[in-house]
Amino acid sequence: MHTATLPSLSTNVSFLGASNMPRASTAPTRQFDSRTLFGDAQEVRIEHFGQEYRLRQTRNGKLILTK
């Protein structure tokens, strides 16, 4: 499995749908190029609040996120 190293998130980031997290209206939007996330892999795993998610690339260049 290929592992990408991303910059760490600050503690002042709000997440869509995370009602238990305080909203930070001045938090900047973070953007990553998919090549940075995937490298030469077709799938990356993302841990979010203790849950693991899989982000996959399809042959047609679409992205699929599953829990």
Results as ranks from 00 to 15, higher is better:
A24C: 10
E52N: 07
I46D: 01
T26Q: 15
F38E: 00
L37G: 01
I64E: 10
R54I: 06
R45S: 06
D33A: 13
R35Y: 04
N60V: 02
L55C: 02
F15R: 04
D40F: 04
H2M: 11
G17W: 12
Q57R: 15
R23P: 01
M21I: 11
P22K: 15
T11G: 14
I46R: 00
S14N: 13
M21R: 15
A18K: 14
Q51E: 09
R30D: 03
Q51F: 03
L63M: 11
G17S: 09
Q57E: 08
G50A: 07
L16A: 10
Q57K: 15
T58K: 10
F32T: 02
S34K: 12
A41G: 09
E52K: 07
E47A: 08
G50C: 08
N20P: 00
S14T: 09
H2P: 07
Y53T: 00
G61H: 08
T66E: 15
Q42P: 02
V13M: 15
A18D: 15
E47D: 11
R30N: 06
F49H: 10
Q31L: 14
E52T: 11
P22N: 10
L63S: 03
E43M: 13
E43S: 13
F15M: 11
D33Y: 08
L9R: 06
A24L: 10
L16Y: 09
R45E: 03
T58S: 15
V44G: 01
T5F: 05
F49Q: 14
A4L: 09
P7L: 00
Q31F: 03
R56N: 03
H2L: 11
G50Y: 08
L55K: 01
S8K: 13
N12Y: 08
G50E: 10
M1C: 03
M21A: 07
F15Y: 13
L6F: 01
R56K: 13
A4R: 09
S34N: 06
P22A: 13
Q31V: 15
A41Q: 08
T11F: 05
P22T: 09
P7H: 00
E47T: 09
T11Q: 12
M1I: 03
S8E: 13
R59Y: 02
L65G: 00
G39R: 12
M1W: 04
S10K: 11
F15S: 08
T5V: 11
V44E: 00
M21L: 14
R59W: 03
E43D: 09
R30G: 02
R56G: 01
N60G: 07
F32N: 04
S25A: 13
H48I: 04
M21C: 05
L9W: 06
T3D: 05
S25P: 04
L16C: 08
F32G: 03
T11R: 12
N20T: 09
K62F: 04
N12P: 01
S25E: 14
V44H: 03
I46T: 00
Y53M: 00
L6H: 01
L6C: 01
Q57Y: 02
K67F: 02
P7K: 00
L6Y: 01
H2Q: 12
N12I: 03
D33I: 05
A4Q: 07
F32Y: 15
K67L: 12
Q42W: 06
F49M: 14
G17E: 09
N60I: 02
H2E: 11
I64S: 04
D33K: 14
G17C: 08
S10R: 10
F32E: 04
M21Q: 10
P7R: 00
A41D: 15
Y53I: 00
F38M: 09
R30S: 07
T3W: 05
Q51D: 07
P28A: 10
A27L: 11
